[in-house]
Design a protein around this nucleic acid. Structure first.
Lengths: 246, 246
DNA sequence: CGCATCCAAATCGCATACAATACGCTTCTT
DNA sequence: AAGAAGCGTATTGTATGCGATTTGGATGCG
């Protein structure tokens, strides 16, 4: 006798069961991490998650394995999974790779955007503008999606996958080390980028993107100006004691 | 009644069972693909593989899932797994990303190599030299490992993982589209690269690497000069009929 | 003789069952 | 009472079983 149809049918808005259920589980956990419902360092027992999602450990395990490959989850043998808690070094590494990849994105795109694509991008930026002041989380999500939109437009599936991965990890990193209410991406920089891409000015576009990501990284990784490592080292213990450090 | 201890104990040299068995299965399949024991397009039924390796379908499934994420196997829902058969477009995409990543590698490394590391690299190149004429497969493997060696030296785990991934896929691609006996990497170019890195000349190093990878790509992706697509389209049918096209 | 339909074998998707390991707690010893 | 050893529980690692989906082929009909 199957046991599901409790968790799934309960929620307010039913997400379409796109693809296999394994995929759904993967996306659910992934999203929970990115949106910080699951905070870095948190334990992820297979049983509880499976129960909550209405699936068996098998699928949860599969999802966790994949998330571990992608760096969102740490998977220690015989000790189980937990939400990744990236170090400052790892954070820097991720940003370095991201800059490199996004350089390729704009290089591929410069002068090759269709009118359709330009419209899509400009519409998106307008959305960002509207969400600017109010609703922090929404604004952050939109800013991230702009970059993913760009990578999708390259038509390079591998590049797209990598950009999505580093974007996810950047979300985690910003959650950990970002300044409280920095709007992550300046909308004006996105506009600049679109303009450069339209003109086909690859050099300018890459420069803008580089500067843009540099700024994001600076707001985050370098945020703890002095005693950066101290904060890094102390946070886990604070959590263990039940003290919220943020 | 367990059935193993047949496949594992049979081989000539017993590989150390580093890490979990799941990991071993993953590496076994991965290696089989890269070394072309499993050719592109070949079906990969969970049962047979598990039986051959002395493990259950569970672990095989896990490995195949991961390999699918990495692009070495194709995983079609309800149809099973098969060794990836990259198209020319995908091949080009992979090479594009690879160039971008390796640019970052040499940029990170320029002027920062320790004496130890330089020695390691020079030793490796000498090995390549020796394996040059004779023993094709060995030569190809060494050439690939040179790049992985470099990425490891950056200390950037993410970058390293990505480079390893694209390297694997490049092996597949070269197997499909590469000219028969092209030595893949010119050893002299590797030497040039080391020299530039020692001098700390990042620009020169990136230029060399770019040129180097361009050459590799040209030997492969552009190899089928005319009627490229015809060869591409015909190959699968040839295999199905038991006709060796190469 | 060609074509559609139905059936059976193979294979996958997922859940469950069992084995192994790690952790915390009690208890025994000194 | 403090420390060590043994045990019980909780959680992970792996195998197996059952239902679902696809595939190749046999059968019957036009």
């Amino acid at each position: 006798m199957p046991n599901q149809m409790s968790a799934k049918a309960s929620g307010a808005h039913r997400a379409e069961p796109k693809g296999s259920r394994a995929q759904s589980v993967y996306r659910a956990i992934r999203r929970a991490i990115i949106e910080q419902a699951l905070r870095p360092g948190m334990k992820l027992p297979e049983d509880s998650i499976g129960e909550q999602l209405g699936v068996s450990r098998t699928l949860v395990r599969e999802a966790l394995g994949r998330l571990s490959v992608e760096g969102l989850v740490e998977l220690k043998p015989n000790k189980g999974a937990s939400v990744a808690y990236p170090t400052l070094e790892e954070a820097r590494d991720v940003f370095d790779v991201r800059r490199s990849l996004e350089r390729l994105v704009v290089q591929s795109l410069a002068g090759r955007l269709t009118a359709q694509q330009v419209t899509t991008l400009e519409t998106h930026v307008r959305l960002e503008d509207e969400a600017q002041g109010r609703d922090g989380p929404e604004s952050i999500r939109l800013a991230g999606e702009f970059h993913i939109l760009l990578s999708e437009m390259t038509g390079n599936a591998l590049l797209d996958r990598y950009v999505q991965e580093v974007s996810s990890r950047c979300s985690l990193i910003l959650a950990l080390y970002g300044r409280p209410h920095s709007s992550e991406c300046a909308v004006s920089e996105h506009r600049q980028l679109i303009e450069a891409l339209k003109r086909g000015d690859a050099e300018e576009a890459m420069a803008v993107m580089d500067h843009h990501l540099e700024a994001v990284a600076a707001r985050a990784v370098l945020a703890p100006r002095n005693s950066a490592d101290i904060r890094d080292l102390l946070a886990p213990f604070a959590r263990k004691e039940g003290l919220k450090s943020s």
